[in-house]
Amino acid sequence: MRLAVLVLGLLLCLVTGAASLAPIPPSNRVSLIHDRLLNANLNRDHVMVVAHRAGWKKDGVIMRAENSFAAIDHAVSIGVEMVELDVRRSKDGVLVIMHDETLDRTTTCHGKVADHTLGELRACQLLVEGQRRPTEEHVFTLEEAMLHARGRIMINIDNKIEPEALVEVADIARSLGMPDGVLLKLAVWDADRLQLARDIRRAISPDIALMPILADDAVTEPAFIDRTESSIGAPAAELVHWHRDASQPITADGGPLLSPLARAAAIRNNAHLWINTYPITDRPEGMVAGGRGDYLALKTGRPEDVWGFFVDRGVTIIQTDEPEAVIAWLDAQGLRRPYDLTN
């Protein structure tokens, strides 16, 4: 009997020891991601990945309903730092998750989101687009999305309604005890718009991250980029490098928003540079990335000409429709560091 007890104890020790060697996702993963977001200059050897519409594709094939819990869960499982979710308002004033103005493309319902109450939207099943396959998920609120993601992954809010709604979004995040769980953004193109960003910055308070979206059809001067980043305490700047004409060559230098002076402004302001390599339906490949988009990388087998091109020019956040491929390539280049308790 004594021998049996000793053997059992030894086996338990071995099992416990083996389990302790297994990687355990830290419970404070979001706080670690948030810390890297706020400290760009300490983390320029790590490229963060954002899943566009929460991550709905793989190799160009739609695998999940966009903006869905399933997409969020998958993004968490592959190590994505942030999911982008689109926010609209129901007829009775509730913030809900939906990309389009209408329900037709992505749900079993029809008509405008704003013409339906939350109760009516609850009956709309999310679809896997292309297949038109209904899922078990229904339209959900922003608050529900935040609760689903809380502690596991950050949410980048793509606000499809009035800019002032960002204050409401911030209030929801704070009420749920997750001010570090969201990143808000606002397009800024001139002095008036910058003043609006300042006003929103003051209204939401410093504990909620806010960044500008800067597009090179309006913003080209490094001084304005510098002023925008510094005046709202932006941890990042989302850059749009237009490529509207497929007959034109793709960008050779990244455009004015990735010039040496623009990159110097980002370093002065401890801000990340963010590029979007996802496609826009029925538009030239890489339309918002100077023609260097996800499917140029995948079709040519030369990701260095897309994701590598932007990393070489100082980009440290990539929003993509192909997060698995981007993470795999970044890992292979040594451009990802694991999130552990020492960060």
Rank of each mutant, 00 (worst) to 15 (best):
M1V: 12
V5K: 14
L8D: 01
G9C: 14
L14R: 08
S20C: 08
L21Y: 12
I33E: 01
I33C: 01
D35C: 00
L42Q: 15
R44F: 05
M48T: 06
W56H: 15
K58Q: 15
D59M: 12
G60A: 07
A65S: 15
D73L: 05
L85C: 04
V87D: 04
I97L: 14
H99G: 05
E101I: 05
L103I: 01
D104A: 10
T106F: 00
C109Y: 01
G111W: 10
V113W: 03
A114I: 13
L118T: 11
R122D: 05
Q125Y: 11
V128I: 15
E129S: 11
G130T: 03
P134N: 08
T141F: 02
R152W: 01
I161C: 06
E164K: 11
L166G: 10
M178N: 11
P179M: 11
V182R: 04
K185T: 03
D190V: 00
D190P: 06
A191I: 01
R193Y: 02
L194N: 03
I200D: 07
I204V: 14
P206A: 04
P206F: 02
I213M: 02
I213V: 15
I213P: 02
A218Q: 14
A223H: 09
T228V: 14
I232G: 11
G233F: 06
P235E: 10
H243L: 06
H243T: 03
D245T: 02
A252N: 05
L258T: 12
P260N: 08
L261I: 00
R263V: 12
L273Y: 08
P279N: 14
I280F: 11
T281M: 09
G290C: 07
D294T: 09
L296N: 03
A297M: 08
G301K: 12
E304I: 00
V306D: 11
F310N: 05
V311R: 15
V311N: 04
L330V: 06
D331G: 03
A332G: 14
L335G: 00
D340C: 03
D340R: 12
D340Y: 09
